[in-house]
Design a protein around this nucleic acid. Structure first.
Lengths: 123, 123
DNA sequence: ATACTAATGATAATAGCTTCTCATTATCAA
DNA sequence: TTGATAATGAGAAGCTATTATCATTAGTAT
């Protein structure tokens, strides 16, 4: 059976309170204030379990880092700050790219990654 | 001084012939037919040097893999095949996303990554 | 052709991140 | 409460990608 531990509650609380995608290390740092002594292995274990239960969504960034956020949002994009490395959710999606970022944010670059099946593999 | 070795020629030839972004491992595999015995360390060394000389451009994918392609193209996007994992260049960019992919290709997903400076860091 | 030395190939070492191990702790059904 | 055991923390181990080491090879100026 699955136990409702202090550690798991602190991890979920960190994600709920922060409202943006977090790395494993960020989850550890934030949840540690609720739960002193929290170990990195426990964060990894819980993140893995939460992903399998679909209580957490991965956000994969170019460069290799993976962040996690609570699911339930509909389609949205992400804004990555060049200076602080934080990643913010962007909900509006009219594809006028400059309108996507919140006021005060400066959009400098964007990347579009398309995926699907290429011609050679379509058969 | 910089020497024009058989290995470097084979590495550049692999990128010229293939006309799509390649991973270090793919470069090794393809260039090995021109240059049997080619070592992975040599590919890393040459890729690093070519990047510094801006004779090669990195293509960073969500999930962490980094591919390399010859520069000189103007702004373009990439199409990643779900089945064969190959990445193709997409040159047309009208932002009608379905028009971006070549005929015969099936567009299933796209990701947009915006980046810049967030409000908190703008000051 | 020769000498100098940059570049190479094989492999050891490193780095960063993630998972495993295991003794201990804490949750929860009864 | 208590007993069974899932979950934890600490650190070892594993993994993957990249870089360093070093004896040997090969490009280049002469």
């Amino acid at each position: 059976m699955e136990r409702n531990t202090q550690q798991r509650r602190a991890i979920l609380a960190a994600l709920e309170v922060t409202k943006r995608p977090l790395s494993v290390q960020e989850i550890l740092d934030i949840a540690s204030s609720d739960c002193p002594g929290l170990g990195i292995a426990t964060v990894y274990r819980n993140v893995k379990a939460l992903l399998q239960d679909e209580k957490l969504s991965p956000v994969e960034l170019p460069g290799g880092s993976v962040l996690y956020e609570l699911p339930g949002h509909h389609h949205h994009h992400h804004f990555s700050c060049r200076k602080c490395q934080k990643v913010y959710d962007i909900f509006d999606c009219g594809l006028n790219l400059h309108n996507l970022v919140p006021s005060g944010f400066k959009l400098e670059e964007h990347e579009i990654l398309l995926s699907g099946v290429c011609e050679a593999c379509a058969h």
